[in-house]
Structure formats: structure tokens, C-alpha cells
């Protein structure tokens, strides 16, 4: 994969990916726009600027790997994988349809580029740890990236995995936390407070950074910092905006799991400058 550090290019890719996400979810008639839009800039940075990956690579090749632990953000992952050439872009319009290889949540056996199966929250980090351990046994000099949600921090398994990643000194593991502050029922702080997240992760033995998750320079810089830390897993807590890029979706729990209707899609695409 050709990588770019050009911010304007990354912004342009992210804009187009957000458009694809909204079209996909509209056509599916269901799905989760809010968390795909908040995670878009992180995932675009990973696949177009940071990770060593390619649709040409074989499963067991030494390569960077990505685990989407917050599996409900599948649409943004699918849009990015299609853009990278893992499968045809037309497939995106079959999201959530019977016989489509694009399930509502990531399913590794059916979708090229999806490493492990997620969708039940809290299970991705353990799997990312397992991949990192496997890569270590194979002496691969590669990184494993894992994207989690802030509501997901309420799952106990996350903290089991946080402990084991630090215990096994998984320096190759770099996790992102999409801190959009909202979950289905409302604000995370009202439903079940998870803060202070930086102190929690630090106390579990992780190297922690906190950045603006919509700032490409900050995302790339944080990963460079994280790569320098060899004896600890890294957590990059990203302050993000749920529904980012569509004014009427931003910071509203309603858009966690609601598909835009035709009128809403038209307005959203207009804001994103879709042709």
C-alpha cells in the first residue's frame, strides 16, 4: 500500500470515507453512523499513513494488523478496506444484506482484511494481545493496532486484557480509544462513568497519551511516540466527536444506531460536499 503523510490528502480520503459510510448505512436501513464518523480519522490514518499492510499479503506474512474491537463501527472499516483494494467498492452497498460478505459487525472468515471477529464489546483487545503474542513467537517486527470505544470500557474483559498486555510487555501493541463520550443510552458519564481513563490505563501499566482524534498530525505523532516504547503496550486516548462531520449528527446519542433516511442522507452528503 502506498502511504501518505500529506494532511490534505488524508482529510480528503476521510471525507470520502464518511460519505461512503452514510450511503452504506442508509442503503442497509440500519447501522451505527455516530461511532463510524467519530473513528473515521483514526482508521484512515492507520490504513493510509501508518500501517504496513496490503491486500496482496498472505494471512501469515509479517505485517501490521488492525482489530476493530468496537465492531459496530464496521462501516468505516469496510469503506477503508474497499478503498485499499481488499474488495470491490460496489460491495459496500450490500452491507447487512443476506448473502453479503459485509456483516453488521466484522466477521473475519467472510471479509478480506478483517483479522478477527468482533461485535460483542470488550473482546477485541484480548484477541489483539493474542495476535501480538503470536507475532512475537514468529519474531515479526510488526505492530498490532486495536480500536476500542469509551462505552466499551465498561466491559470487564477489557481490564483483564489490559492487565495481560502489560504483564506480557506487549510493546508492539498500540491501542486507540475512540472517546466520543456517548453510548446508546446517553452520555457515558451518566450511564456508567469510565473516567479518569488516562489514570486507569497508566495504573494498569500502559504508556498513555491523550490527543485530538480528528487531528491527523497528532494521530501520526502519537503512533511515532508509542512505537518508541518497547516494554509496554500503548494507549492513545482520542478525544472525538460522535457523528463528526455531519452537523445534525454530532454529539447526539440518537445517531449511535440510527440509519439516515433519504432526506437526512441528502443533507449529510451536502455538508460533506458529495458530488
Amino acid at each position: 500500500m502506498k502511504k501518505t503523510k500529506n494532511i490534505a490528502e488524508l482529510q480528503e480520503i476521510a471525507r470520502r470515507m464518511r460519505i461512503d459510510v452514510l450511503k452504506m448505512i442508509h442503503l442497509a436501513g440500519s447501522g451505527h453512523p455516530g461511532g463510524s464518523l467519530s473513528a473515521a480519522d483514526i482508521i484512515v490514518s492507520l490504513f493510509f499513513s501508518i500501517m504496513n499492510h496490503s491486500p496482496e499479503y498472505k494471512k501469515l506474512d509479517a505485517r501490521d494488523k488492525f482489530v476493530l474491537s468496537k465492531g459496530h463501527a464496521a462501516p468505516i472499516l469496510y469503506a477503508v478496506l474497499a478503498e485499499c483494494g481488499y474488495f470491490p467498492r460496489e460491495d459496500l452497498w450490500t452491507l447487512r444484506k443476506l448473502d453479503s460478505h459485509l456483516s453488521g459487525h466484522p466477521y473475519a472468515p467472510s471479509t478480506p482484511g478483517v483479522e478477527v471477529t468482533t461485535g460483542s464489546l470488550g473482546q477485541g483487545l484480548s484477541q489483539a494481545n493474542g495476535i501480538a503474542l503470536s507475532d512475537r513467537l514468529d519474531k515479526h517486527d510488526t505492530n498490532v493496532y486495536c480500536l476500542m470505544g469509551d462505552g466499551e470500557m465498561q466491559e470487564g474483559q477489557v481490564w483483564e486484557a489490559a492487565m495481560s498486555a502489560a504483564h506480557y510487555k506487549l510493546g508492539s501493541l498500540i491501542a486507540f480509544l475512540d472517546g466520543n463520550e456517548l453510548q446508546i443510552d446517553g452520555w457515558v458519564k451518566d450511564i456508567m462513568n469510565v473516567e479518569p481513563l488516562d489514570k486507569k490505563w497508566e495504573s494498569f501499566g500502559w504508556h498513555v497519551q491523550r490527543i485530538n482524534g480528528h487531528d491527523f498530525t497528532a494521530i501520526m505523532g502519537a503512533v511515532e511516540e508509542a512505537k518508541k516504547v518497547k516494554d509496554k503496550p500503548s494507549m492513545i486516548i482520542c478525544n472525538t466527536v460522535k457523528g463528526k462531520g455531519v452537523s445534525f449528527m454530532e454529539r447526539l446519542a440518537k445517531w449511535h444506531g440510527t440509519a439516515p433516511n433519504s432526506d437526512e442522507l441528502r443533507r449529510a452528503l451536502a455538508e460533506l460536499g458529495a458530488e
Binding site: K59, L60, A108, E115, V116, G122, Q123, L125, S126, Q127, A128, N129, G130, I131, A132, L133, S134, D135, L137, D138, G156, Q157, E160, A161, M163, S164, H167, Y168
Partner: peptide, 28 residues
Amino acid sequence: PARFFNMGVAEQDMIGTAAGLAAGGKIP
């Protein structure tokens, strides 16, 4: 010893870690 992972008293994490190891071609 390098191929043995004691996960502590954490069964959910053990199963998930095993799944990740399997994704890397191991037989956990």
C-alpha cells in the same frame, strides 16, 4: 516456557487471547 501463557484468573481474556493466537496460525 515461551509457548505457555498463564493468564491469571481471567477466563474471558484467556479465550480471547487464544483466538488471537489462532489468528496468527498457532494451535492454542
